[in-house]
């Protein structure tokens, strides 16, 4: 079946389209190749195409763990940072959804005075520089005793994520007419049933996309995390920044960089399956 599909696809693609796909794949995968090689290198100098000395050759002689030995050792704090990043990202996404779903419904369906001004106002946090927000929030959070806590970081992460989420969900709601919900009601569904069986399944692809986006934004915030975590709550971006601030990647920095991309990739794969199966499989039924 899959093979048939491939043949069908390839026969439909013109040579130019195939070339175009290859170029895009190259752009996406290309940067990973030197990163993977670097993560196994000990000494990799220009103009050598491959490292002159590999990490494994030096492994026994080294005074401290090198390359992947360092990345996977507790010294690198990668595990702690990954757990923190995923934990903060998940909570931020959940809170963000809870705030934005009702807000988007109102913004998409109701008309009220000052609506467009309000929409503009919602995007403001994206315009103010992160450093300014960070310092100002830190001052406030210190007084509230929230600085250096997970609560503080999560609250701060809501600032740049809510504007994105609201915009995305508003667009999704706009695409979803009231007709389906009214149909269901006419057929005798109560409000809860409408929400559970009609509205949510139809919104789901948009919600998953928004949640994915929020999660990715949250897992990439460096400055706010550093300030409000007072440097003590390590996440993948803060860990990576302290490693690569130099501008050159050594083997352990390359390894950490690869690890940093993992949560996003895993999430993309999961959500890809989820959108297909849940929304179009169960939601509409056969």
């Amino acid at each position: 079946m899959a093979k048939k599909f491939n043949i069908a696809l390839s026969s439909r693609l013109s040579p130019f389209q195939k070339f175009y796909l290859l170029v895009i794949a190259g752009f996406i995968l290309g940067p990973f190749i030197p990163l993977v090689i670097q993560s196994f290198a000990f000494r990799w100098a220009w103009p050598d195409l491959l490292p002159g000395t590999w990490w494994l050759e030096q492994r026994e002689k080294a005074m401290a763990p090198l390359a992947w030995d360092y990345v996977l050792s507790p010294y690198s704090r990668v595990w702690e940072a990954t757990v923190n990043t995923v934990f903060i990202g998940t909570i931020v996404t959940a809170i963000c959804l809870a705030i934005c779903l009702p807000a988007a419904r109102v913004l998409a369906r109701e008309k009220f005075r000052g609506k467009s001004a309000f929409e503009f106002f919602l995007s403001l946090p994206l315009i103010v520089p992160e450093a300014a927000i960070g310092i100002a929030l830190l001052m406030m959070f210190i007084r509230l005793g929230l600085a250096g806590s997970y609560v503080g970081i999560i609250l701060a992460h809501l600032i740049p994520t809510i504007p994105y989420m609201v915009r995305m969900l508003t667009a999704v709601y706009q695409g979803l007419g009231r007709d389906f919900e009214e149909q269901a009601m006419i057929l005798g569904a109560n409000r809860w049933q409408v929400l559970r069986l009609v509205t949510l399944p139809m919104l789901l692809p948009g919600v998953v996309a928004g949640a994915l986006f929020t999660f990715l934004v949250s897992t990439n915030i460096f400055l706010l995390t550093f300030f409000l975590g007072q440097g003590q709550i390590v996440t993948l971006p803060t860990l990576l920044f302290s490693k690569i601030a130099g501008g050159t990647l050594d083997a352990s920095a390359a390894g950490i960089t690869l690890i940093v991309t993992l949560p996003g990739i895993i999430l993309l794969i999961i959500s890809e399956r989820f959108i297909k199966e849940e929304a179009f499989g169960k939601g509409f039924g056969n």
């Binding site: 005074m63 401290a64 763990p65 090198l66 360092y70 050792s73 507790p74 010294y75 690198s76 302290s242 490693k243 601030a245 130099g246 050594d250 352990s252």
Partner: peptide, 11 residues
């Protein structure tokens, strides 16, 4: 925290 050697030594 840019030096692996120092990070390892600390821990």
């Amino acid at each position: 925290g840019g030096s692996d050697l120092l990070n390892v030594w600390m821990d």
